[in-house]
Design a protein around this nucleic acid. Structure first.
Ligand SMILES: [Mn+2]
Ligand SMILES: [Mn+2]
Ligand SMILES: [Zn+2]
Ligand SMILES: [Zn+2]
Lengths: 120, 120
DNA sequence: TTGATATTGATAACCATTATCATATTTAAT
DNA sequence: ATTAAATATGATAATGGTTATCAATATCAA
């Protein structure tokens, strides 16, 4: 668990469970894939890891200490992400939900692009 | 292809390929699961079907003739969805992308709640 | 020390999706 | 209408990320 969290923190951005597992193994750690999944799962439940869905069918994870509601702008090349303020978008979703009479409305924003460093 | 499209239209909202397949079989149609996937795939490429990712790991599809960029507010109970105007959110994402120097930025909004009909 | 409890790693199972392939259907040319 | 090539279809196997299982190991409290 601590090992997985460390590795994820040092990763800096979003990474898949499989990739994280490979990197840990390559580093010589004795760890199982199931443990990586389990750790990421409980870390996300405890709020220190955020989850997103990459372009493909892999779930990707990133360490994020901030427990308050926010979103990320993520690089599709390297996985780097920046926390972004979303007040404006929050108000928009709330007003849309009200307009159509939907309740218990939640949302997921997946915003991806190419970060400054990855631009040739 | 036409059969799949019809079924999806009559469905009204979002539904998974597996569910659509089951409903077609229950209706007595002679169709294969692969054909359902293939049809939904090409329909989405031709722009008459939109794709989203449900809470679980299933991809869900909905007939949507509107080829312009827009988003949906979807009911997590019955799959019903309403097309929503997102100009405000579009401007927000564009400004965020500019602020952090990200280019080629695209986004996916998944906004789900409980529709008026499904509220007890 | 000892016994109960929780964690771990290896591996099998799961399941949505895709690839394969033989058959059936459509299309175009003769 | 015949025939041959091209395309679409359904059945089924394969893929791959994720989860379940389980025996072994570590942790903890008497
Ligand atoms: Mn938000
Ligand atoms: Mn948009
Ligand atoms: Zn980058
Ligand atoms: Zn509903």
């Amino acid at each position: 668990m601590d090992l997985v969290y460390e590795a994820l923190v040092s990763e800096g951005g979003f990474v898949s469970a499989q990739d994280l597992y490979r990197k840990l193994k390559d580093r010589g750690e004795n760890i199982g894939l199931a443990t990586v999944y389990r750790s990421l799962q409980s870390l996300s439940e405890s709020g220190s890891v955020v989850i997103a869905r990459g372009d493909d069918s892999e779930t990707i994870y990133s360490a994020c200490e901030d427990g308050t509601h926010h979103h990320h702008l993520r690089c599709k090349r390297c996985g780097a992400s920046v926390k972004i303020d979303s007040e404006e978008a929050e108000r928009w979703t709330a007003s849309v939900a009200r307009e159509y009479g939907y309740v218990e409305v939640s949302h997921t924003f997946d915003i991806v692009g190419i970060c400054p460093k990855c631009q040739t």
